[in-house]
């Protein structure tokens, strides 16, 4: 009998409220079952009209439900920025090369520029705007970025912070070398890298303590 070592989506469920993520993302620990699935015997028409039709897309973003009507081509990034008005998530390359658009989807850090929004039906998305508590108190990672001057122009910062939270949650912030390696998908042209590493160490340790 082959032994099941791990399953595809097990990582999210280990998180706790105090371990960096807001509680709401815990809900979606498995791939959502989608009702809009295609049946082979009932293919939709293949005309241009169909390809251009707007798709109804629902997702939770920062603990709120959003119902979008989107072009299939719209990236998750553009849906957040242009359709949800959440401009904290940044476009730096639009091709998955800079990390500025990093958000958490179902608790995992991903590049929102390389994900079509329609592929995120039913998902739970967290952006930089969703980190601070309702009373305005900052997430420990946000405070650590301030304390360690982990940015200059600030443009890559939302992506750095979301990626840093993902990095710690994934268990890849054990050493400074690990942090450097696992944060290398986030370019900082101002080159605040040593300060970013220091910030992540601070936030990681604070979170462990609490």
């Amino acid at each position: 009998m082959p032994k099941v070592i791990s399953t595809g989506t097990s990582t999210v469920s280990k998180l706790s409220r105090r371990s960096f993520m807001s509680g709401s993302v815990l809900a979606a620990a498995t791939m959502p079952i989608i009702t809009r699935s295609a049946k082979a015997e009932e293919p939709p028409s293949d005309g241009q009209d169909n390809a251009r039709a707007l798709a109804a897309v629902s997702m939770r973003v920062n603990r709120q439900s959003y119902n979008f009507a989107l072009d299939n081509r719209t990236s998750l990034l553009d849906a957040l920025r242009d359709h949800a008005g959440l401009t904290g998530t940044k476009k730096g390359c639009d091709h998955g090369q800079c990390g500025a658009c990093t958000v958490l989807v179902d608790g995992r850090r991903v590049l929102s520029c390389l994900s079509f929004a329609v592929m995120n039906e039913g998902r739970d998305v967290t952006t930089i705007e969703g980190l601070a508590a309702a009373d305005g108190s900052l997430h420990p990672m946000q405070q650590a970025f301030i304390d360690n001057d982990a940015f200059q122009c600030g443009y890559c910062t939302p992506g750095q912070i979301m990626s840093a939270i993902g990095c710690v949650n994934e268990g890849h912030a054990g050493s400074e070398d690990d942090i450097r390696e696992y944060m290398s998908g986030n370019l900082c042209r101002c080159a605040a890298y040593p300060n970013i590493v220091a910030a992540i160490v601070q936030a990681r340790d604070e979170t462990r303590r609490s």
Binding site: I34, R36, S37, A38, K39, A40, P43, P44, D46, Q48, N50, A51, R52, A55, D71, N72, R73, F116, V118, M119, E121
Partner: peptide, 17 residues
């Protein structure tokens, strides 16, 4: 280019489409 988007429910549906 615009595209039609579908989400097949299982492998056989994906192959069939």
């Amino acid at each position: 280019r615009p595209f039609v988007y579908e989400r097949p429910a299982d492998v056989s549906a994906a192959v069939a489409v």
